[in-house]
Simulated scan of single mutants.
Amino acid sequence: MQQVRAVVAKAKNAPVSIETINVPDPGPGEAVVKVQACGVCHTDLHYREGGINDEFPFLLGHEAAGVVESVGEGVDTVAPGDFVILNWRAVCGRCRACERGESWYCFDTHNAARKMTLEDGTELTPALGIGAFAEKTLVHAGQCTKVDPQASPAAAGLLGCGVMAGIGAAINTGAVGRGKSVAVIGCGGVGNAAIAGSALAGASRVIAVDLDDRKLRLAEKMGATHTVNSRETDPVEEIRRLTGGFGADVVIDAVGRPETYQQAFYARDLAGTVVLVGVPTPDMKLPDIPLIDVFGRGGALKSSWYGDCLPSRDFPMLIDLYRQGRLDLDAFVSERIGLDDIEAAFDRMREGDVLRSVVVL
């Protein structure tokens, strides 16, 4: 067992604190990872605010990269010294989704069985089964994906959640390809990643929609060909105007609210695709869309879980594209901070001042 510094949320809506935690030695199928960098994601704030569940205290942080320090019995996929990105959907290989060759839908994903604790023995709930606002963390070995060690940890770690969710929503879920038109509603970290993924896939037109001109300027740097400030312009009408009056082939809702979903539904072309990747709250209901419109417009209405990614397939590929200069992951890193700066990073996130603050250890 080791003792390390970590960021813990002890109670709903209370400020986080730096605590000394106990990290057990890895058991069968587990690994201890020395964390090098971890992004500050909205999901961490949702945990702190009690928006995920009430299993306090939480060990926050999950968008992480680092180096494997030790592994438990039976682990042969990674070894000490490997540079890895952590993921929160370690596939089982045995459930009905995995057996039909759709492992990205795995219904029985793995986390470490042993528990990290506070000094007094209180068990911690690691965010998304990772808990990486810590000098070291214990995870299931399947949550470790080995990638090129020359990649910047601050950039690489973002593939662990938000950036992968956005890129995957475009390429994996939305099947964006050469010549397609795409609209992305919401230009935070996930939305801008969807824009970057659409541009990478060869979309002919990438329309960014947001209320904030600062975010729209960032979207242009990520590959948006057109921008729409939905505070000033009806986004549905403007997306149609920019696509010859038809609507976009793929519309990605990276906000996850009833009103943005309704905009996405009506901003797509006939037989077009809507992708919901923004996470709604439990109280939200589907917007009032006549069922005849669902039938009459055809196409597909999809939800994107973690960008429908398969970490063992997608992380190394995207890191290779990053190393080749074809995917600018560094552009998502707004600032580098320390473990003591998490609360201030949450404030900047609320104000929309950053794509990602990244804790560097």
Score class of each variant (00 low, 15 high):
R297T: 15
L124F: 13
S103Q: 12
M284A: 15
I85S: 07
K302L: 15
V358L: 11
A169G: 11
P280I: 04
A9V: 01
A331N: 11
E73F: 09
Y261L: 15
G223M: 09
G174D: 09
P287D: 05
P15S: 04
G202W: 12
V78W: 09
G244T: 01
N22P: 00
L211S: 07
M317L: 14
K302Y: 10
F133S: 01
R350V: 11
R241C: 03
G272E: 03
R356P: 07
D308Y: 13
M1A: 13
K221A: 12
I195M: 10
V251D: 01
C187K: 02
E232K: 13
R100N: 10
C106A: 09
R348D: 12
G39V: 00
Q262G: 08
R240V: 09
A132P: 05
I130Q: 08
V75K: 02
V182S: 09
G352Q: 10
R313D: 13
R257W: 10
F346A: 02
D213N: 14
E19N: 07
R178C: 11
T173Q: 06
R240S: 10
D314Y: 08
L200Y: 14
D269R: 07
K180T: 13
K10H: 13
D293I: 05
V184E: 01
R313A: 06
E73P: 03
A90H: 07
F56N: 02
G247I: 00
T273G: 07
E49C: 12
G162I: 02
T125P: 09
A300W: 11
H62A: 00
S204K: 12
S17G: 15
P280E: 04
K115M: 02
R297S: 13
G61C: 04
V354N: 14
A271G: 00
D341R: 12
R5D: 14
W305R: 03
G27N: 05
V163A: 03
G160Y: 03
A97N: 13
V228A: 06
L361K: 02
Q36C: 07
V354R: 06
T137D: 11
M222W: 04
E102G: 05
F133T: 00
E335I: 05
L301S: 04
G93D: 08
K115Y: 01
E55I: 02
L158N: 03
S70H: 00
T125H: 08
V84P: 06
A11S: 15
V84C: 08
E335S: 15
T117S: 14
F346W: 06
G325K: 00
T43Q: 04
I185F: 09
D120V: 04
R323H: 07
S103E: 15
G197M: 13
